[in-house]
Computed example of a mutant assay.
Amino acid sequence: MGDGGILELGAPVLAPRAAPRHVALIMDGNGRWAAARGLPRFEGHRRGVDALRKTVRAAIEFGVDYLTVYSFSVENWSRPPEEVQSLLALLHRFIRNDLAELQANNVRVRVIGSREDLAAEIAGLLLEAEQSTAANTGLTLVVAFNYGARQEIAAAARALAEEAVAGRLRPQDIDAEAIARRLDTADMPDPDLIIRTSGEQRLSNFMLWQAAYAELLFVPVHWPDFSRADFEAAIDEYAQRDRRFGGLATADRRAKTAS
C-alpha cells in the first residue's frame, strides 16, 4: 500500500447526525480508475491506499467505532500472479509505513478471514498489526483479508457440527445466535452501513450474514477518488434512512403508539 502516514494527530472528533457505529467498505474500481487514465492496475491499487488513509481519518473524525474494509477476497487469488504479488506488496508496505500512525491515534487493527495456507511472512504481518494495537480503544479497523462470507459461514457450520458430534451441543440448540458466535466477527456489531464504490450493486461474497439489516449504499465514484466529502455524504444518507429491522416505519410506529 502507499507511502505516508494515515492520520493527522489531534484531529477533532465530530458528532454527526445519527452516525453509524459500524461502516463496511467494498473498495471497488481501482483497476477501472487506472485504465481510464492509461495507467497500470498497480497504480490504481496504490492510489486506493491513499483513499483508505483519508477514509480512516474521516471515520475517526465522524465518531465511527468500527470500519471494515474488504482488502483481499478468497477469489482474488485467481487474478494474474503479478497483480496478486503487487497487492501483497502493498499490504506489506501499508503495515510497515502506517502501523505507527494507527498506534499513535489509538486505532485497533483486527483481521478477519482465513489464515490457513497463508505465507508465513503475510501471516506474521497480520498478526503483528493485531498484537501491536490490541490495547487501543479508539476506532477498530477491521481488515478482511483472504475473506469470503460463504467460506466464513461454512466454517461456522463445520464448527457447530463438530461440537454436536462430540456431544457438546444439541442440534436443537443451533440457532442464529449460535452461528453468529462462530463467525469471524463474533464480538463485533453487525455493520450499520455498507458502502460499495464504482457503481456496482452487489456484495460479492462480503459479510453476507452480517449484512442482513445493513443499509446498503452504492456510489458511482471509483475507490481511488473516494474522498472525505464522499464519506460525509454517505453518513448523511445513512442518517436519512429509517432502519426498521423488519418492523414498522417510524411514522407507522408513531401512529400505532398514538392510537
Rank of each mutant, 00 (worst) to 15 (best):
A58V: 04
F72T: 03
E43K: 08
I60P: 08
K54Y: 05
G48Q: 03
R53H: 13
Y66K: 02
Y70R: 06
A58H: 01
K54F: 01
H45T: 03
S71D: 09
V49N: 10
F62P: 01
I60F: 12
F62T: 09
I60E: 15
E61S: 10
D65R: 09
R53K: 15
E43I: 03
V64K: 05
H45R: 06
A59W: 00
T55D: 13
D50G: 05
R46P: 09
G44Q: 07
G48P: 04
Y70D: 13
V64R: 02
D50A: 11
R47K: 10
D50F: 00
L52A: 14
S71Q: 11
V49R: 05
D65P: 02
E61D: 14
F62H: 12
R57I: 02
D65T: 11
T55N: 13
A59Q: 05
L52V: 06
T55S: 12
V64T: 08
I60S: 10
T68K: 07
I60H: 13
D50W: 01
A51V: 00
R47I: 06
R53W: 02
R46E: 15
S71W: 00
I60T: 07
R46V: 09
L67N: 05
A51R: 00
K54S: 15
H45Q: 12
V56P: 04
E61Q: 13
A51F: 00
R53G: 15
A58R: 03
V64Y: 06
Y66R: 03
E61W: 01
L52K: 00
R47P: 05
Y66E: 14
A51W: 00
A58Y: 03
Y70G: 07
V56M: 09
R46N: 14
K54R: 14
V56L: 09
K54C: 13
A58L: 09
V64G: 08
A59S: 11
A58C: 11
A59F: 02
Y66W: 07
V69C: 12
G44A: 10
F72Q: 10
V64I: 15
Y66P: 05
D65Y: 01
V69E: 08
